[in-house]
Amino acid sequence: MESSNTEYLRGTLKTIVLGLLAEKERMYGYEITQAVKERTSGEIVLTFGSLYPLLYKLEQEGLVQNESEEVEGRLRKYYALTLIGRQTARQKLLDFTHFTQLMNRLMQLPLNLSTPPTPDSPAL
């Protein structure tokens, strides 16, 4: 299951981060990973190796801007959506919702897959 999650996440990580940033005024790196972890009950865990390249990329694309602030003696970088970033986030979330609806319609679980196979069941 883990490998499937990773596979699906590849295409949706940008939407996830944009969606989270759209909900709050600004967030820092660890806060984003924690939000993802909490909302998925620990099933999706982002590492700094996957998060920071995306944040830097969003920044390069002008969707996100950062501001540094000293917190508890450390320099913390907060990320916030720009105006274009907010519009992109909205569009991405709408596209994604539409896509999941399509997938739900497309991927109806067939009856022969809804129950696990038993030893008596005929082999295909």
Binding site: Y28, G29, Y30, F48, S68, V71, E72, R74, L75, K77
Partner: peptide, 15 residues
């Protein structure tokens, strides 16, 4: 990159 990663890891340690 070090300041940002220090903060990230420090948050993780605190957690």
């Amino acid at each position: 990159l070090i300041d940002e990663l220090v903060d990230y890891l420090a948050c993780q340690v605190e957690d």
